[in-house]
Nucleic acid binder design. Structure first.
Length: 875
RNA sequence: GGGCGAUUAGCUCAGCUGGUUUAGAGCAUCUGCCUUACAAGCAGAGGGUCUGCGGUUCGAAUCCGUAAUCGCCCACCA
């Protein structure tokens, strides 16, 4: 062991232990009599690669899982991936395009073959990357939202909801993504503020020469679909228009003037053009006034035949061209600059087109109810709690969920159309046929007569089942695993998918499993760069996590991430955080080298200083264990880690080890050695959830371990008692030692040189053996008066001094004392002011007043000592 | 346009129901040390009056009001 390098080398350790854990199936869990602790991973996109957000998120999950495992629970962390319908399909389409193949050239089956090839090739890379991080997932359970169980679960759930009347099909105004060529849910639309224009266009009034009204619009190309102009009935400017028609510019179509209070009189010109096919509000007006609806767009955002002009041109090109043409025709009044919000597709960033189309929806109103209540009542706890507000707001304003997507990659909607019209919903073709025969009364129908709806389901329609479907709880709700592992314990996720995923999982939990899916939801922050920008590919400010692991080690990166991630806050990531983590690994490593390098002699007795050191550190350790328990219980993970960091670095390494360390070349006694190894073992266990690799490596070195034995299953230490008096005594001791060190530094006295210490006052001498050793003293003497040729410092009300003969500089000593005199004089004045305030003395609780009195007497005593010292120096 | 949250040392954050806090931690900074576990280290030091204003109270970083700044979420003003 003495051969250990002076620096910790993660690369020599990490792969080795991960393999060991895998080889001995230490991540695997089966139901048993222990208390379960379950986490399901937020499934990353199957073709995705690891980014910093994943690192943070999964580090936290691993910490929680490992800690639970070491608490003796049956811990299970289930991994898996999401098929990510739109985003994967888009990637496959792009790849095919690069090979000169258009999606439209392929059959559904051919396309899906390509998609599966792609998935098999890139799928799961991200899961491999997670292993580098140390993730203790039960890989034997790796699932995919499109594997058999998960797919069947989706179909089952669709049928269930349909049978209950919660799923319906209908023509509605939906968000259309002209790039992905599919409908989207409201949540998949991101509104961005954009600099645009408000175009004021002239609409001639039919049958009235030279009379026109001005309509303001941001989308002049949509006039092709205008079927009315709307004004407010209370607007005196326009009452004369009642019953008249206006001519749509360029198009020449006469459309009616309708009157509705929906129109704001003070916005724009007070005239609103109505395009029922291409605007949600216009759709509402069209519905109310029975207006025709002209769909002027093709699915890809070009103008359709129905537009009548500019056919085949892209909507944005038309916007430019039509303004030129309108201008030529003298139909433009003016153009204003205008900032408005434009909806973009979350996945493709294409500008969303509101479009009337036939889609499938989930009726949300009813099924949302238990899900809302459970979060509001803290039956499911959100951490931080502020997200309860966000959740409540969304849940109480919830709209129906558009679940159909015009994609091929995903779960195909289990609905079959009958030849004579109408459809049936079923779990499979056979069942569909039976239902179809029953519905149509046509016993001669065959499967070939039925046509299955080509659309797929929203990807979230499968992931909302994740905590249930992972344990096959949809298809077989009475199975042992589901009963054991569900509800899961904690969910760790980013707040940006609170609606997409978290809320819907809660809804699904109550709807399909009659129980919440998890007890706690821990929302992580967003990983940003040092100057607060969100990490993104386009900015290039996102480091490659695997490079970081190479550079700092997985433990170092984990620690770095956790240090910067206080609960509920975004993390401002900087490499220096990982550097700190790496340095900590090194510190642990070197502390270990020290201890392992000691030679043990069973015949020598334990020095008093070491005995006291052991007693103190034992109490300190206990204290911190209790603190860590408390913090982890509140998900204050970074604070818990910081507490352990300080315990190891400051208390254990800088104090404890220095106290018990034998003189160079000397052996250590058996009792101290054993205690020290015991402490080391406890510290490693406390640290293991945060830094799994280095702790396993050292723990294995610490003693002879059996094959398959691992720190992963060593029990996390339990706090026993706390608040031993020795804790406070030791803190005082530290101050005294620091006092001596300061004098050494000021007087440039080497540590090797022994000093005498004079103590004036009634000091506690119980830790004197440690003081002798740490301050390298020859004697500690009580004196009535300190020697004028000594350098002094005060701790509490006790004055310590070191006789130094010639080395004393009276000026310096006086300056030091005067500074203290000044400070305590002011301090005392403050306290006395408080105490002379009758209202304070009368109203404040006795204990508080007593504290002030104690401050007063201590300060008075101290001031006396300082004054005496000054007098002695001046004499 | 609504709602929520934040504002404490150079940076990132603690400070729970107001009182041993004229405010703590880590990092960074400064000074001195290559002292045989560790210079990715050791020993020491400096640094903030708690965003501004007003109020409640014997007492406020902590409670209330208000302003400013930043951030997030939601919303159909063309």
């Amino acid at each position: 062991m003495n051969e250990l390098a002076t620096k910790y080398d993660p690369s020599a350790v990490e792969g080795k232990w991960y393999e060991y854990w895998m080889e001995h199936r230490l991540f695997h869990s089966e139901p048993d009599e222990r208390e379960p602790y379950t986490i399901v991973i937020p499934p990353p996109n199957v073709t995705g690669v690891l980014h910093m957000g994943h690192m943070l998120n999964n580090t936290i999950q691993d910490i929680l899982t490992r800690r639970a495992r070491m608490q003796g629970k049956n811990a299970l962390w289930v991994p898996g991936t999401d098929h990510a319908a739109i985003s994967t399909e888009a990637k496959v389409v792009a790849k095919l395009a690069s090979e000169g193949i258009a999606k439209t050239d392929l059959s559904r089956e051919e396309f899906l073959n390509h998609a599966w090839d792609w998935t098999n090739k890139y799928g799961g890379i991200i899961l491999q990357q997670l292993r580098k991080l140390g993730a203790s997932c039960d890989w034997e359970r790796t699932a995919f939202t499109m594997d058999d169980i998960r797919s069947e679960s989706v179909i089952r759930v669709f049928n269930k909801l349909y049978d209950k009347g919660y799923i319906y099909r209908g023509v509605r105004m939906v968000n259309w993504d002209p790039k992905a060529l599919t409908a989207l849910s409201d949540e998949e639309v991101i509104y961005k503020e954009e600099q645009s224009h408000l175009f004021h266009l002239r609409y001639r009034v039919e049958g009235e020469e030279d009379k026109y009204i001005i309509v303001a619009t941001t989308r002049p190309e949509t006039i092709l679909g205008d079927t009315a102009v709307c004004v407010n009935p209370n607007d005196p400017r326009y009452t004369w228009l009642k019953g008249k028609k206006v001519i749509v510019p360029l198009v020449g179509r006469a459309v009616p003037i309708i009157m509705d209070e929906y129109v704001e009189m003070d916005f724009g010109t007070g005239c609103l053009k109505v395009t029922p096919a291409h605007d949600v509000n216009d759709y509402m007006l069209g519905d109310k006034y029975n207006l025709p609806s002209i769909d002027i767009f093709n699915d890809n955002g070009t103008i359709s035949e129905a537009g009548g002009m500019y056919v085949g041109m892209d909507r944005f090109d038309v916007r430019k061209q039509i303004m030129i043409d309108l201008d030529k025709a003298g139909l433009v009044e003016k153009v204003e600059d205008y900032v408005n919000k434009v909806g973009h597709s979350e996945r493709t960033d294409a500008v969303i087109e509101p479009k009337l189309s036939m889609q499938w929806f989930v009726k949300m109103e009813e099924i949302v109810k238990p899900a809302l209540a459970s979060v509001m009542d803290d039956d499911i706890k959100f951490i931080p709690a502020k997200f309860k507000n966000t959740y409540r707001h969304w849940m109480t304003n919830i709209k129906d969920w558009c679940i159909s997507r015009q994609l091929w990659w995903g779960h195909q909607i289990p609905a079959w159309f009958l030849p004579e019209g109408g459809y049936v919903v079923a779990e499979n073709e056979e069942e569909a046929l039976l239902k179809a025969i029953e519905k149509s009364g046509n016993a001669g129908l065959t499967i070939a007569d039925l046509k299955r709806d080509p659309d797929c389901l929203d990807t979230w329609f499968s992931s909302w089942l994740w905590p249930i479907s992972l344990f096959n709880g949809i298809l077989d709700p009475d199975n042992k695993e589901f009963k054991y592992y569900y509800p899961t314990a904690d969910l760790v996720t980013a707040p940006d998918i609170i609606f997409f995923w978290v809320a819907r999982m809660i809804i699904a939990g109550y709807e399909f499993a009659d129980n919440k899916p998890f007890n706690n939801v821990y929302f992580t922050g967003i990983v940003r760069d040092k100057i607060g920008r969100k990490m993104s590919k386009s900015l290039g400010n996102s480091p490659d996590p695997l490079d970081l692991i190479d550079k700092f080690g997985a433990d170092g990166v984990r620690m770095g991430l956790m240090l910067g991630a206080p609960a509920g806050n975004d993390i401002m990531y900087d490499d220096s955080l990982c550097e700190q983590g790496r340095n900590f690994c090194n510190k642990i490593w070197n502390a270990f080298r020290l201890v392992k390098g000691w030679e043990v002699d069973g015949n020598i007795s334990q020095p008093e200083s070491a005995k006291l050191g052991v007693e103190w550190f034992s109490a300190k350790l206990n204290n911190t264990i209790a603190e860590v328990d408390d913090l982890m219980g509140k998900f204050r993970i970074s604070e818990a880690l910081m507490a352990i960091y300080r315990l190891f670095w400051d208390e254990f390494s800088s104090w404890y080890l220095e106290v018990v360390k034998p003189t160079y070349g000397q052996p250590v006694d058996k009792a101290t050695f054993d205690s020290t190894l015991g402490f080391f073992d406890t510290l490693l266990r406390l640290l293991h959830p945060f830094m799994p690799f280095i702790t396993e490596e050292l723990w294995q070195h610490l003693a002879d371990r059996k094959a398959g034995e691992s720190i992963m299953y060593a029990l996390i230490p339990q706090a026993e008692c706390c608040d031993a008096p020795i804790l406070a005594q030791f803190e005082t001791l530290k101050e005294v030692i620091a006092g001596v060190r300061t004098i050494r530094k000021q007087k440039q006295i080497a540590q090797k040189e022994e000093l005498q210490l004079h103590v004036k006052g009634n000091s506690d001498s119980s830790l004197n053996p440690i003081l002798m050793k740490m301050a390298n003293l020859s004697t500690i003497e009580h004196v009535e008066e300190k020697s004028p040729t000594s350098s002094a410092f005060i701790v509490g009300a006790i004055e310590y001094s070191i006789p130094l003969e010639s080395k004393i500089n009276v000026e310096e000593e006086l300056a030091k004392l005067n500074k203290e005199l000044d400070y305590y004089t002011k301090f005392l004045a403050g306290v006395e002011k408080k105490l002379s305030n009758e209202k304070f003395v009368n109203n404040a609780p006795e204990a508080v007043v007593a504290v002030e009195r104690k401050k007063q007497s201590d300060a008075t005593e101290k001031l006396e000592a300082i004054r005496a010292s000054i007098a002695a120096l001046q004499s």
